[in-house]
Simulated assay, not measured.
Amino acid sequence: MTQQVRIMRGWEWGRPVRPVRREVLDAVPGLDDGRPPLLFVPGFGHGAWAFAEHWLGHAAARGFPAHALSLRGQPGSDPAPEATLRAYAHDVVQVAASLPRQAVLVGHGAGALVVAHALARYPARAAVLVAPVFGGWGTALAALRRNPLGTLPALFGGRLRVSRAQLFGRELPGEDARRHLARLGHPARRAQWQLLFGREPEPAVGDPPVLVLGSPDDRILPGPALTRAARRYGSAPLLFPGMGHDLMLDARWREPVDALLDWLEKEPSRG
């Protein structure tokens, strides 16, 4: 099957994305045996810190160079109140291109949508979508049903609000949950609006293998949306019952990251 890839994007050349300083946190193994680097991309309200808590060091301990990016406007990077999904995807592509080898892109939540857009511009070794929020009217309506008081302000340019029960499972100690919630930031209004009502990502360059992880008990992402995201890439989601939306911060955080790394050790790139 012939895949059509857009090479020229004239309007993007005419309106380049503004450069910013981006925070990138790193954890590298003591011995470099040539494994592909991982680039973790956080969702809205989060930052590189969400992966530095557990996954970054764990990946490095298993021999994978690991890097976590704070998108523009997220804690650690330059402010960007009018950031767009296009600007976020630009951030991912720029950082991925600076790594010494073809990277594996790992996006969480809305960061998975950013990764999906970046895949149309960067030939990734592979991609992992963790609890992917791909947006659209279906996601917006599901969010309104599950969290009306937190979602309604976002429809009018306000902040999307989430709770402890939506992000974490019951096993996470309350002290840890409060600490993580206190670090959540404010997503850019335009990017938040594009998440709810934006366009579908273009096809990925090079047809990289894609793994989708999630939880059937996720109170942000409805189960059918998780299945649709996986089917988009010709697979089925790998599920972790009892966990919340933030798999990388929840009590059993080792299970999904070990599954991710096990898959990378076995799955060759199709690119």
Rank of each mutant, 00 (worst) to 15 (best):
V92R: 00
F134N: 09
G138D: 14
V133T: 14
A83E: 05
A120L: 07
A120Q: 12
R125W: 13
V114I: 15
E82H: 13
Y122K: 10
L119F: 04
V115R: 00
A112M: 01
Y122F: 09
L129D: 07
G111A: 04
A127N: 10
V115C: 07
F134T: 10
V95A: 00
G109A: 15
P132N: 08
R101V: 05
V104M: 05
V130K: 00
Q94K: 15
A116W: 00
A131I: 06
E82D: 15
R101E: 11
A127T: 03
L119D: 06
P79W: 01
E82I: 02
P132R: 13
V106R: 06
T84E: 10
A110G: 12
A120M: 02
P100T: 06
G136Q: 04
A89T: 09
A120E: 09
H117L: 11
A83C: 11
V95W: 00
L99M: 09
A80N: 09
L105G: 06
H108W: 15
Q102H: 03
P123W: 03
P132H: 14
A131G: 10
R101T: 04
H108I: 10
V133E: 12
P123F: 09
L99I: 04
T84F: 04
Q102D: 07
Y122W: 08
G109S: 14
G135M: 15
D91M: 02
H108N: 14
G136I: 05
H117D: 15
P81G: 06
A124P: 10
A83F: 00
S98N: 05
A80T: 12
T84I: 01
A118L: 08
A140D: 08
T139A: 15
R86I: 03
P132S: 10
V93H: 03
A131P: 09
H117V: 03
P132G: 12
A126N: 07
R101P: 12
Q94W: 10
A110K: 09
A89E: 03
H108L: 07
D78T: 09
A124T: 04
A116N: 05
L119K: 13
Y122H: 08
P81F: 12
H117A: 07
P79A: 14
D78C: 02
V130T: 09
V114A: 12
F134W: 11
Q102C: 13
A140Y: 13
W137M: 13
P132K: 12
G111C: 03
V115N: 03
V95F: 00
G76Q: 08
W137H: 14
V115I: 01
H90M: 02
L113H: 03
A120S: 12
D78A: 15
H108D: 07
G138Y: 02
V133F: 12
A103M: 09
A96D: 00
V133Q: 14
W137T: 13
H108Y: 12
G107H: 02
G109Q: 01
S77F: 03
A96Y: 02
A103Y: 02
H108K: 01
G109C: 14
A89D: 08
A126R: 02
V133R: 09
W137S: 11
W137R: 14
P100C: 00
G76E: 12
V95P: 06
P100D: 15
T84K: 03
S98P: 06
A126D: 04
V114G: 10
P79I: 13
R125P: 05
H108F: 13
S77V: 05
A124H: 04
A124G: 06
A80C: 14
L85I: 04
V130A: 00
L113C: 04
L85P: 04
V130S: 00
